[in-house]
Amino acid sequence: MSLEKKYAKEVKQILAKYPPEHKRSAVMPLLYLAQREEGYVNKESMKDIAKILDITETEVASIVGFYSLYHDEKAGKYRMQVCTDLPCALRGADEFLDKLCGNLGIKVGETTEDGLVTVEAVMCLAACDRAPMFQTQGPDGIKYHEYMTLDRTMELIEALKGGKE
């Protein structure tokens, strides 16, 4: 089913934010909508969005490619994005990431066997005073997890398994 049919209400709400002659502005919120279920934007949705906004699929793809929170490939249900930028790194982020990966038995960028989490290293998330920290990007959007320890992270992963965040 097309995005426009499936999420008729949301699409309408999104479009209402922008002047009709500049509806292209809606491309970013529509991409979040398209990414909601599978965690990445597939080609069909790019086509749908292009049609809604009267732009080309290539233009939509070009947006997906530019912004790091849009993905065009499947990964774990949750992306666990650990900030390892300078301020967090000064407060132990790199070591935290290493330990986390060791514990999960994966490398940075890889997904756990059960397909639940993909661990990634990302740039500053504006939580530098609360390192180590990461965000999860998943079906219900993006959430912050701050002042993290390995134990608390493993607990979180357990909870995610149960479908709760």
Binding site: H22, R24, S25, M28, F66, Y67, S68
Partner: peptide, 24 residues
């Protein structure tokens, strides 16, 4: 309006491009 992970969008004209639905 939510951006999507691009530091450059803090630069004011890149921000406007992004808000217009283009690459920031």
């Amino acid at each position: 309006h939510l951006g999507a992970g691009a530091y450059i969008c803090g630069e004011e004209t890149a921000l406007l491009e992004s808000l217009e639905g283009k690459r920031g």
